[in-house]
């Protein structure tokens, strides 16, 4: 395996990953702010979404919204 990392290659590979995670986070944040009622305090969910890595937005999508 190549010991010397090419920085540009590494960035190129990781950018899509970061973009996807950002999209998830943004959708979750928009929904969280827009929804009338969340299960538990809204601020808590905002923090979970932002700091919860991948799990944060997932947890919000699955459990955060009151079932319509």
């Amino acid at each position: 395996m190549n010991e010397t990392l090419e920085l540009s290659k590494m960035v190129g590979l990781l950018v899509p990953l970061i973009i996807l995670q950002l999209i998830l986070m943004i959708i979750a944040l928009v929904l969280c702010v827009k929804t009338e009622e969340t299960r538990g305090p809204k601020l808590m969910w905002v923090l979970i979404i932002i700091f919860g890595q991948l799990i944060g937005p997932i947890a919000f999508f699955l459990f955060g919204r009151r079932q319509a």
């Binding site: 395996m1 990781l14 899509p16 990953l17 996807l20 998830l24 959708i27 937005p57 997932i58 999508f61």
Partner: peptide
Amino acid sequence: RSFKLIWVPIVFAVLGIMQPVLSYYMPI
């Protein structure tokens, strides 16, 4: 409308990308 059709595939894509990336960088 519940955004499931968007977020579930994205989560799968993230999981799918992470595995090879982790394997590649693991030694380092």
